[in-house]
């Protein structure tokens, strides 16, 4: 019953957003029914399209988990982009640099080293915050830019195949690829497993309890004997690890190599997903699939109904808006109160 109730709010938000979106489409002179059926068709009808949706959802799940996990400790990780990029780059390098390994070793190795790169990139802001009090919002933003430049430099100077005109790493070995079963990508299931793993970690372990305590009240937590510094560093490292896995799967399972600019904005979408899921790791999965489905079918909607693809951005923003404004939801549930999370409350705490 509790699950049903907490799922109702986002569902109502989605319905409201689609209604407003329909109004906009109608006003722009197209048929909302046609547009929405194209949206649905383009993302869920047929194995191939369904597979593409899941493929697009995978990095969104991991990026969303990264942001959501950091939120639990009261940390705002805007650095998902840089951490994802670090993972994608290192996975690409390991994927082509090591050869002759069997799949059972090579693929996990590339995935793990990519994730480790993300973890390291995420740990830097954690260490700077814990030891020097540097605000993680600043350092993660700055590190995004550093990661983008660093990756481009490595691709240009170190890992580019001689003779390749494009700035990118060579294609990874077959033994490093994450396969797809028919059209269903294995990477998606890896992401789902991580989502359940993070839920377990947060709800069922001592460490998870410590993370949540620090997020709810750092002073009380340290009074109770929890080392907030340790939690801050570990949380940021795990958050970076999750984003790094997302980047690695993108390289090993979808693109086959690292190419600067291919994943622009994926890390920032993580913020949207985490907010939509209200930082619940399990809810991250449907949130990511929803956003991915709109991304995947926007062009079909343009083709079939003549609606500009940017309308999906508007619908996305509307969904977030309705999820975020408790007053609108309270029109539906008079009694519902007190279980809203405030993301902003930890914004400035150091």
């Amino acid at each position: 019953m509790k699950i049903l109730r907490s799922a109702l709010v986002p569902l109502i938000a989605v319905v409201l957003a689609l209604l407003v979106g329909a109004l906009l489409i109608q006003l722009s002179g197209s048929s909302p029914l046609k547009a929405y059926s194209a949206l649905f068709e383009g993302s869920f009808v047929g194995w191939e399209r369904f597979g593409t949706t899941l493929e697009k959802a995978t990095p969104l799940i991991m990026g969303g988990l990264a942001v959501a996990f950091a939120f639990k400790a009261g940390l705002f990780n805007i650095g998902g982009q840089g951490q994802l990029l670090a993972g994608a780059l290192i996975a690409g390098a390991v994927g082509y640099g090591f050869s002759g390994l069997p799949w059972i070793i090579h693929m996990p190795l590339a995935l793990l080293l990519g994730a480790a790169a993300g973890a390291a990139w995420g740990a830097i802001p954690g260490v700077l915050k814990a030891t020097r009090g540097a605000h993680e919002v600043i350092t993660t933003i700055m590190l995004n830019f550093v990661a983008a430049n660093m990756a481009e430099w490595l691709c240009t100077k170190v890992w580019r195949k001689p003779g390749d005109i494009l700035v990118r790493t060579p294609h990874i070995e077959g033994s490093a690829e994450i396969p797809t079963f028919g059209n269903i990508p294995l990477g998606f299931f890896i992401a789902v497993i991580f989502a359940f793993g993070i839920w377990f970690l947060l709800q069922k372990t001592t460490f998870g309890f410590e993370v949540r305590s620090v997020g709810l009240n750092p002073n009380a937590a340290s009074y109770a004997g929890i080392s907030t510094k340790r939690i801050v560093i570990l949380t940021m490292a795990i958050s970076g690890f999750l984003a790094g896995v997302g980047g690695s799967i993108e390289t090993l399972g979808v693109l086959g190599r690292y190419e600067p600019g291919f994943n622009a904005g994926l890390g920032f979408d993580g913020i949207t997903i985490a907010l939509l899921a209200r930082t619940n790791p399990i809810a991250v999965i449907p949130s990511a699939v929803l956003i991915a489905s709109m991304d995947a079918s926007a062009s079909l909607m343009q083709f079939k109904a003549g609606v500009a693809p940017e309308i999906t951005d508007v619908i996305e923003a509307l969904i977030l808006l309705f999820v975020a404004t408790p007053i609108i939801v309270r029109w539906f549930f008079k009694s519902r109160q007190g279980d809203e999370i405030s993301f902003g409350a930890n914004w400035g705490s150091s």
Partner: peptide, 19 residues
């Protein structure tokens, strides 16, 4: 509307980029 401020800001960013 007493919505969450972080979300409100993100909404503005998405709207501006899309529009």
């Amino acid at each position: 509307l007493q919505g969450d401020q972080i979300i409100a800001g993100v909404v503005l960013n998405i709207f501006a980029l899309g529009l």
